[in-house]
């Protein structure tokens, strides 16, 4: 059975409107489900098997409340610790932190001489071009204490 041209046009338009509505509804929901924490930069230096590896990650928080990074894991390492380098009178100390806070609509910047990740028990030496998979577990400092998991990939850069 063939439809008159006008009917076909109306049907196509209805279908397009329906698709648009579904798409609009999906995008309207996206802000609520999309992670509020994003990875801005993630890189590492080459490192030998048997020695800890430093990884620098910058995380941005798009939420209006602060977010705590409460755990970091990697399938390529036994442990991932959050560390901060402190310089006192020219002496370098490292301090392990169980958590780190990303301020509301702010960033937690990983950079040399400051906040960084220390990977222990890395399963093989890391060389330039290798990638390191990381998963951050973050918890919002809001009433719901909502948790999110953020995936990141750090690339090993040339020194």
């Amino acid at each position: 059975m063939t439809m008159p041209p006008d009917h076909a046009r109306v049907r196509r338009r209805t279908l397009a409107l329906l698709l648009m509505a579904v798409s609009t509804s999906a995008s309207a929901q996206r802000p609520a489900t999309a992670p509020s924490v994003t990875v801005r930069e993630a890189w590492a230096r080459p490192c030998l098997l048997g020695t800890p590896c430093g990884v620098y990650v910058t995380l941005a928080n798009g939420a209006a409340t602060a977010v705590d990074v409460i755990a970091v894991t990697s399938p390529q390492a036994t442990t991932v610790e959050m560390h901060e380098t402190m310089l006192h009178g020219g002496q370098a100390h490292m301090m392990a932190h169980p958590t780190a806070t990303i301020p509301p609509r702010g960033v937690l910047e990983g950079r040399p001489g400051k906040w960084h990740l220390m990977l222990g028990g890395v399963r093989r030496a890391l060389v330039v071009g290798d990638s390191i998979a990381l998963t951050f577990t973050v918890q919002h400092q809001d009433r719901a204490r909502r948790r999110e998991r953020i995936a990141a990939v750090a690339i090993v850069r040339a020194p």
Partner: peptide
């Protein structure tokens, strides 16, 4: 302080020894 063994606090400066064997410059981290 670390699950990966002990850490070491250490001097963060580096030194430049000139061609005449003199310690000439120190650099902060």
């Amino acid at each position: 302080t670390s699950a990966t063994g002990y850490l070491v606090s250490h001097a963060s400066q580096s030194f430049l020894v000139a061609p005449d064997g003199a310690l000439r410059v120190m650099y902060s981290f």
